[in-house]
Amino acid sequence: MIGSWELAFIVLSAIIVTIYGIVVGLFLLGVDRKLAAHMQARVGPPIRQPFIDFRKLLIKENVIPENAIPWIFNLAPVMSLASSIVILLYLPIGSIYPPLGAYGDLILVMYLLTIPALCMVAGGFASGSPYASVGAQREMVTMIAYEFPLAIVVVAVAWRLAAAGIQDPFTLGSIAAYPLWSVAGPLGIIGGLLLLLVMAAVTPAELSRIPFDTQEAETELAGGLLVEYSGKNLAMFYLSQGVKTLVMAAIAVAVFIPWNLSSIVTLPEGVALVADLLFFLGKVILVMFFSVSLVRVAMARFQINRVVSVFWMYLGLIGLVGLLLLMADAALPAAGVLA
């Protein structure tokens, strides 16, 4: 099925994407901390601080608690990092077509997104600490809570594209090539904005950030899921946190702001690639600022039952309204023509 050349290409690009994902992921964590610090009137750590932290964690002792299940405890961080990187292989980065784009679509990405969270749950339960167990239970509840609104977003966007007669509406390639805003009419654009709001709320939950960081909740559970982790294992989780940040922002970028600089301004080939990458990074930082940095400094942490009611009732409802608007938009072709 896959030729040897293609295989070599995929392996090579996987290596490049891995390095890119880790470096940009850590950089994003640094930018996030800097922005949050400035909003709180602090100077904050230098942007390279996550790299320093990572190096420090690597030289720290890797403690495995006595009543932990060692193999799950050690496997969870590696799996979490690996699965987050795999998602990156399905996502367009700048104008570069995803290396595995032809083999999976947004539905697959949605499934893959649950794996890092499941790894954390497994690692938490395997830690053998009551804090980690409570954290793991909360992580599961949170996961169940936000999957529903996330699914609405994905389905609604793809459905609208399919209604517009676009082939393979679930592939990220088509979603990026035909932005929702250019397909939909005014009603659809309002619906799209509502979906964007839902996506912005799902992102901090996926990344376990305030207000949805109940599973780690420093002041309640002392780090919850990660309470027993240290050294290399914690470093792996730290990296996967960075990569996940990039992944979530990249999904939002691919679905909602897929334009590239090269498609707007004509640029020479080599310059266009670099410019697109930088433009992509800018978009990612923008998404991260509004859905992670700003939200996490502007709100108090929710209780776990509140997390569920927020996602199932409020955001679920907003998502459904968005979906209905998109459907109504597709049902009125005239509106689409007008736009």
Partner: peptide
């Protein structure tokens, strides 16, 4: 969420820390 305008304003200002 009265904190949000306050935070955005602060983002544009100099941090309060004495370095």
């Amino acid at each position: 969420l009265p904190m949000i305008p306050e935070l955005l304003r602060q983002l544009m200002r100099k941090p309060a820390t004495n370095l």
